[in-house]
Design a protein around this nucleic acid. Structure first.
Lengths: 211, 211
DNA sequence: ATATGCATCTCGCAG
DNA sequence: CTGCGAGGTGCATAT
């Protein structure tokens, strides 16, 4: 038993918050879920704090979350209406767009062949050619971790099976690259490039001024 | 402007919730952060809804979150006190502990060499030996997905470079294994084992009774 | 409905 | 403090 905040949203989710852990609840049930009040809660131990209500929230896979309520300090309900939504900036998609405009920022002489070049196991962020005409596959992340290196490795493996392309170089580009990811990349002959987002955006702005 | 829930926690975090997205806020600032009310909010557009207050939340890296408040429908504050905390059951650590006690549940004749056996790129969950004396590396997940297979593959690659160990088998153990992960594992010669947590715990309880 | 990839992920642990 | 792995991750998108 503890004083906690229970948040029931219109989407059907239920969250139980303590006064810490940032935005993450102690426990929760994601929608879709159904909500029921179990009748006549019986206290197992007479010494325990009395339970005045018992809620059961049932999730889609049959998981249940039971909430035993002792005392209610505050209970309010509000209709929030339709939300106008939220727009974000600076995510991976923007990095990809900027680098597609300025591939030479990754390696001098690099030119873009296409964005989201398809392979059987998913699209490569950028496919480029270097000054010598060789193909270069680029994987872009906001934060470069091992997963990204694995992803690029799989793409390279498939691209290199394509006789039309010939040898394919790999470039792993991110605003920040974790040491372990860097080690793994180098071990696999993949070049790491850390990106300065603001500088790149500046480059883009300068470009616009020229035309 | 929209009707939203603003949650300010004792840990200093601020979250802004819409009436959907399960427990995730539309926007937030994680602790540690400081909270200030900017004075005299000026409305840029006379037609816009009036802003009666303007909050600025500043994060550790200098990020700021500004909250413009029009009308307050409800405002309440509660002292939640110290939280007794939350104990979880059935997470990967428990699975690992149980399997370390009962490695033969993975494959008959298997015995434990050590838990968290170190490699240059991280620890292998379990290192075991089979009846024939050969080494077996075990990766344990609650939910087996492709990432886990990749992880085990990396460990195996490194362990197999160690001449002291000789050939090393791989076992991928999880309560639930996704079809694609299973296909990838089999393609790489890795054995998949789905674990019945309750049965394993029963095995453990039975063991305790013997001593 | 399911698989894949991103995220201001958050959180806990261990060096 | 930092890095890294786990999470009932959540969430959007493409298939």
């Amino acid at each position: 038993m503890a004083t906690r905040l229970i948040l029931v949203k219109a989407d059907g989710s239920v969250s139980i918050h303590a006064d810490d852990r940032a935005y993450k609840p102690l426990n929760w049930m994601s929608p879709p879920c159904t909500f029921a009040e179990l009748s006549a809660p019986a206290d197992a131990h007479p010494d325990a704090e009395p339970v005045t209500a018992l809620w059961e929230v049932r999730g889609r896979d049959g998981d249940t979350l039971q909430i035993a309520i002792g005392e209610v300090f505050s209970d309010s309900s509000h209709d929030l209406g339709i939300d106008p939504g939220l727009r974000k900036d600076g995510v991976e998609a923007h990095l990809q767009a900027l680098l597609a405009e300025h591939p030479a920022a990754l390696r001098p002489g690099l030119t873009l062949v296409r964005r989201e070049h398809p392979t059987p196991i998913g699209p490569v962020d950028l496919l480029c050619r270097d000054a010598a005409g060789g193909y270069v596959a680029v994987e872009i992340k906001r934060r470069g971790e091992i997963d990204g290196v694995e992803q690029l490795t799989r793409y390279l493996e498939l691209l290199r099976r394509d006789p039309l392309l010939g040898p394919v170089d790999g470039v792993f580009a991110a605003q920040q690259i974790k040491p372990q990811a860097r080690v793994l990349a180098l071990d696999r002959g993949i070049t790491c490039v850390t990106i300065d987002y603001d500088a790149l955006r500046g480059l883009d702005k300068a470009d616009e001024r020229l035309f």
